[in-house]
Write a protein that binds this DNA or RNA. Structure first.
Length: 301
RNA sequence: GGUACCAUGGCCAAGUGGUAAGGCAAAGGUCUGCAAAACCUUUAUUCCCCAGUUCAAAUCUGGGUGGUACCU
């Protein structure tokens, strides 16, 4: 079994901080589990750890993709498994820090995904069916192709139905889940209002640090709303502002609002995972608590 | 001061006589493949107030209050 520490939690609770502290203390290296921080050029809006912090502690899964590229849970699991092995081989402790729940869940539970490629042509056809005949027709297609798979898919969720059809039609081999990870999984928590307050002030900070310019640069490079990376919170809203759809004030409010909604969703997702909950309202106390737990867990075989 | 228009949930808003659409927010939730995505559930016994017409009014009439625009 591979020993891996996980630091999860909603946006703006302070995951990065605790990750770095623990890494320093336990000779660890960090793998980010964040669907936006993997992209180069998306720094401010993704609250990426600073270069300075990246020098203090080795970080992986940050800046590994161009903003034009696609990425999926499958890719994340592949990448991360390799890194975990590498880190352990070097005698260090892997620490996974991030807020993208599904990435982490897939890793912990050992999803064996087949690696089905995106099929743009098929996608276009399916989109067309959805627009012309509705989601029900789309779902019916899935039922016809693979009725077992269809049972697991939300009937009304076009994004998932399309992906399911894509997978069903590809040759990807699916095996059973298997995980060789012995995880110590922390879920950082804090009073909801406190989190919301942090989010609001962090958004203000991002704006002061030049979020709008960051997006402008990406737009200049040819990025637009159909790129996966640009659908992230903080980016799509600025895009709306730059295109004159929203005024500045509205943009700011929307970024805050969407971040709050996101935090809520993360909290819900985390509730369903087996985690060790840590109240981080008192930073020092929380750090001590986590350190003790890591120590004890690390000793165990 | 005059004239016109408007007043519907936290916000935006549809509805012009038949028993309150929708969107956003909020709250809760889903989750094995774009997840900072996508999706689901809940949320106005009541339409600014008062009086009237009518079997029936958010919808019509009169008055009041508040707002907006234009005029003097």
């Amino acid at each position: 079994m591979k020993k891996v520490v996980f630091i999860l939690g909603p946006t703006a609770v302070g995951k990065s901080y605790f990750g770095i502290c623990l890494a320093k203390k336990f000779n660890g290296e960090i793998i980010s589990a964040d669907s936006v921080q993997i992209y180069k050029g998306l720094n401010i809006g993704s609250a990426k750890v600073s270069e300075k912090e990246q020098k203090e502690v080795v970080h992986y899964a940050i800046d590994i993709l161009e903003p034009e590229e696609q990425f999926s849970v499958f890719d994340f699991v592949q990448y991360t498994k390799d890194k975990i092995n590498e880190i352990i081989k070097n005698g260090k402790l892997p620490i996974i820090v991030g807020g993208t729940g599904l990435y982490v869940k897939a890793l912990i539970e050992g999803y064996n995904l087949g690696g089905a490629e995106r099929n743009e042509q098929l996608r276009q056809e399916l989109e067309k069916i959805k627009d012309e005949q509705g989601v029900d027709a789309l779902y019916q297609m899935l039922v016809d192709i693979d009725s077992n798979l269809a049972l697991q898919i939300d009937k009304k969720n076009p994004v998932r139905i399309i992906r399911a059809i894509e997978i069903a039609k590809s040759q990807g081999v699916k095996e059973k889940n298997s995980s060789d990870i012995d995880g110590l999984i922390f879920a950082l928590e804090k009073d909801r209002n406190e989190i919301y307050k942090n989010i609001n002030s962090r958004v203000e900070e991002m704006l002061e640090n030049g979020l709008v310019d960051e997006v402008k640069a990406l737009v200049k490079r040819g990025l637009g709303r159909n790129h996966q990376s640009m659908r992230a919170i903080g980016y799509k809203e600025v895009l709306d502002y730059l295109e004159g759809i929203d005024n500045y004030q509205t943009m700011v409010e929307k970024i805050k609002q969407h971040s709050r909604n996101y935090a809520k969703r993360q909290l819900t997702f985390l509730k369903n995972m087996k985690t060790t909950r840590i109240d981080v309202s008192d930073k020092d106390k929380a750090l001590k608590e986590m350190s003790d737990l890591v120590e004890e867990w690390y000793e165990r075989t």
